[in-house]
């Protein structure tokens, strides 16, 4: 028995008839082909699949697509404007906040929402805020710098 799901993804209305088991991340990647959102662990640990649902950073492998019914969903594909990187994306590039880049979409999506709630995050706030995002290139030091710089740039 299918379920009809409608939501807004990166500003566009989308609707689909889905198997109720479909995770939000599967819907984004396999149905909408928005493959910028990554599946790292598929167990809710690594945070690579972080997207915004109703303005909240959540792990899209830990919710069903059906749970996002009617919600505004934002993925990494939706954060840049007119071909310009989002200030948080630019900060990750400027501060070498990535090596292989696999964790980066989740890092950036979590960091954007963190900066919206804490416009001047301390190093401690950033490190605690990134608890749910793993980087296996051990790039945390530069990621923290990038998030602080990105938060500052978002205020401009």
């Amino acid at each position: 028995m299918g379920v009809t799901v409608s939501m807004t993804v990166n500003g566009a209305r989308v609707s689909a008839d889905l198997d109720p088991r479909t995770l939000l991340v599967q819907f984004l990647r396999e149905h909408l082909r928005l493959t910028g959102t990554h599946v790292g662990c598929d167990t809710g640990q690594c945070g690579a699949c972080t997207v915004h649902v109703g303005g909240r950073a959540v792990k899209s492998c830990l919710i069903l697509a059906a749970q996002a019914e009617g919600a505004e969903v934002m993925t990494i594909e939706g954060v840049s404007r007119d071909g310009e990187l989002h200030p948080m994306q630019a900060a990750f590039r400027d501060h070498h906040g990535l090596q292989c880049g696999f964790c980066t979409p989740g890092m950036v999506m979590n960091a954007i929402e963190l900066a919206q709630k804490h416009p001047n995050p301390s190093e401690e706030t950033v490190r605690a805020g990134l608890d749910g995002n793993y980087c296996r290139c051990t790039g945390y030091h530069n990621i923290v710098k990038a998030v602080q710089a990105g938060a500052a740039a978002m205020k401009r």
Partner: peptide, 9 residues
């Protein structure tokens, strides 16, 4: 509790 994303949900 958990991490930011878990607390958001």
């Amino acid at each position: 509790i958990g991490d930011r994303q878990v607390r958001n949900q």
